[in-house]
Design a protein around this nucleic acid. Structure first.
Lengths: 159, 159
DNA sequence: TTGTTTTTTGCATATTTATACATTTGTTTT
DNA sequence: AAAACAAATGTATAAATATGCAAAAAACAA
């Protein structure tokens, strides 16, 4: 999806550069081949929980209000092994069944992706409860999971 | 001086109330007998380093940046073990992230306080799901947590 | 005091950010 | 495939915030 890529790019730029207005960010994105309008950017920044903080030198700077999430430093790729057995939705939450003993590391992996869509996870032995953020649909979470663990849904369906 | 008094009042209001626009703050100040224009307020907020952060419910909230900025120049509170990493709200529930392996004992400690506001908790390895009683706001839960674990919010924000 | 300099403020307005609405794009269902 | 639904986006504009400039207030010096 176009949006997901943009959100990631926004996070990256904000972490790395000193951005003080949305137009500035807009230009940076354009430089990376990603283009949208200021309106979209405004909505995205809200979704990411980005703060604008004045500094003492007379300018402003955007900050991620939630702390750095890196997909980069995740050590294990879980999607090689068919760990995830089933996904069930309930009460606006998502229940993920894994093979025994693998809930914890799978959840850790999901957490490690640092996706804004996911408020948090709780893992037992072979079950994970995934709590989406407010305003996020389960469909969005599915998309998100597909990004974190490519092929996850195929894997389940083929079972 | 007039300004000093106003700056103090602004800090106090921002800490205590949920302020989302400068006009709103302006009215509060007026209610306290302090009056100025939005322009002055804007300048004061810059001076105080106040940030405006979007929340998941579609609004905004002003924060004193000492409460959100991390880092070096903030004194460390040694009597607090930094077990709790983050608190996220979703679906009227509260998701508390701890350092790995500490969810269970932290949840036990929270349960042990026997607070009415909290219906119960479920702990995984590094995440606690806290379920508030019906009719209890998340704000009340925050207050409650601050009573059980003094300094908890500072600890998180300074991370 | 009086004149001089610095700080603070309001006004008017520019800049920046948010949003209602319509449209497009994508997804699911039949 | 088409219909039905949901999500994402752009346009235009509203809302909110920042700032240049002149006036007023405060601080300072002689």
């Amino acid at each position: 999806m176009q949006k997901t890529k943009r959100l990631l790019a926004i996070e990256k730029i904000i972490e790395e550069a000193h951005i003080s207005t949305q137009d500035e960010l807009l230009k940076r994105l354009k430089g990376k081949g990603i283009s949208c309008t200021q309106a979209t950017l405004s909505r995205n920044l809200r979704q990411l929980g980005v703060a604008r903080i004045p500094n003492s030198t007379g300018g402003y700077k955007y900050f991620l209000s939630e702390n750095i999430r890196s997909t980069a430093n995740s050590p294990v790729k879980l999607n090689i092994v068919p760990v995830i057995q089933d996904i069930v939705e309930a009460k606006g939450l998502m229940v993920i069944k894994t093979i025994p003993g693998n809930a914890s590391n799978t959840a850790f992996f999901i957490d490690g992706a640092g996706r804004y869509e996911i408020a948090g996870t709780i893992a037992g032995d072979d079950t994970i409860l995934l709590i989406p953020r407010d305003g996020i649909t389960l469909q969005q979470v599915h998309t998100c999971l597909e990004i974190i663990l490519p092929g996850i849904h195929d894997q389940i369906k083929k079972k």
